[in-house]
Design a protein around this nucleic acid. Sequence first.
DNA 1: CCCTGATTCGC
DNA 2: GCGAATCAGG
Length: 196
Amino acid sequence: MSWTDERVETLKKMWGEGQSASQIAKELGGVTRNAVIGKVHRLGLSNRAGGGGTKAAAKEKAPSKPSAPKAPPKPKTKAAAPASKPPKEEPELDENGIPISAARRAIIPAGQPLPPQPSANEISPEALAKVSEIEKSAKKISLMELTEKTCKWPVGDPATEDFWFCGLPVQSGKPYCEAHVGVAFQPMSSRRDRRR
DNA sequence: CCCTGATTCGC
DNA sequence: GCGAATCAGG
């Protein structure tokens, strides 16, 4: 794949929207996130702030190897694991030693945390705005499509067709994407004014 | 371990 | 110019 005008345009657009390099790479297809990042740099828009030339991101990398011709710095020696591979799918055990049935996995892909809809909660307007924004581009996946890596934030009314899960990439080990993590784990400052 | 972007360097 | 490998961090 080459960087056609269209692809570059998509790249710029998505990068401008704050999409991650990996997401952009996935969208474009045929490229890795490295390729995307590399292109971003070559295009000179590595910094999303840009505006004023504030080269704040002056990260000093250790020059490291001024003279180290052939000194394997990273012996990624992944010693070939012998072969203790009981090919049979052993019933994976839960943290409590409880076997997890495949059926159960299918039903509840990533766990059970069905989040509370903070509906009328007082959340940072910014966080809410962010959520509404990302929900527009949410993948709108179904329950069955949830994985450990998809945001499990439910949107809409489960009793209607107008119900789906965010599905965007989760931040880390969290069950939600970054935006939803923002509203899901609110520090604590809602019910404080309950002046009794 | 998952992920991020940043840099280097052979192609 | 390109992007894999690597680095440095969250």
